[in-house]
């Protein structure tokens, strides 16, 4: 019988949740026995070939490409998990919501103290357009589970993965349930 498939992605975040994932250390070996890794920055696989059993999403949605990746993950994942504060609440990138897109771009590229000479807002067609706000992932797609934390600790991620892959209930013990 084929092993369950796991995919991961990082949207608007810092990759800290992925780093925390790697912090499960020697249990990575155990994990490889449990799952096959599909699309993920960890194996650099870029596109889905079929459905996966569990998708992990780090980061919120800050631009159009994040939304597209998120939607694809939703379509391809039987269980989709929002991992970390950015995915769940927007996190640090969502600080820009307190100023608004216009002001952010203006200060960053036009009249901020670090801008020398006449600045310009980058506008290469290759660059995805920014959303008006940074959104939690559950505001764009249905999320099946949330793993809070900034990042969720390696213990948290390991406990959650084991539960999801074995079909057990995802009940995190108190010390593992943190928003930071």
């Amino acid at each position: 019988m084929a092993k369950p498939k796991l995919a991961t992605c990082a949207l608007a975040g810092c990759f800290g949740c992925h780093m925390s994932f790697l912090d499960i250390d020697e249990r990575l070996v155990e994990l490889i026995d449990l799952v096959d890794l599909d699309v993920s920055p960890l194996d650099d696989k870029k596109s889905f070939t079929g459905m996966v059993d569990v998708g992990l999403v780090e980061g919120g949605c800050a631009d159009e490409r994040h939304v597209k990746v998120l939607r694809e993950f939703r379509e391809r994942s039987r269980i989709l998990v929002a991992v970390g504060a950015c995915a769940i609440s927007g996190g640090v990138p969502a600080l820009r919501n307190l100023a608004g897109l216009d002001e952010c771009l203006r200060v960053a590229y036009l009249d901020g103290p670090t801008v020398e000479g006449g600045g310009v807002i980058p506008n290469d067609p290759e660059l995805p357009l920014l959303l008006d706000k940074v959104y939690p992932v559950q505001e764009f797609v249905k999320i099946d589970h949330f793993l809070p934390g900034c990042p969720p600790s390696a213990e948290t991620i390991w406990a959650a993965l084991k539960a999801l892959l074995t079909g057990a209930d995802l009940n995190l013990p108190y010390p593992l349930f943190k928003y930071e």
Binding site: A82, A85, S89
Partner: peptide
Amino acid sequence: GNHFCQFCEASGDCELQALGYLFGMVAP
């Protein structure tokens, strides 16, 4: 409000956060 637990000085001592934990709030 605008609550960013990840860099808040009160995190770990915050009663709002602690109640979120107590009631099992995973995401608003």
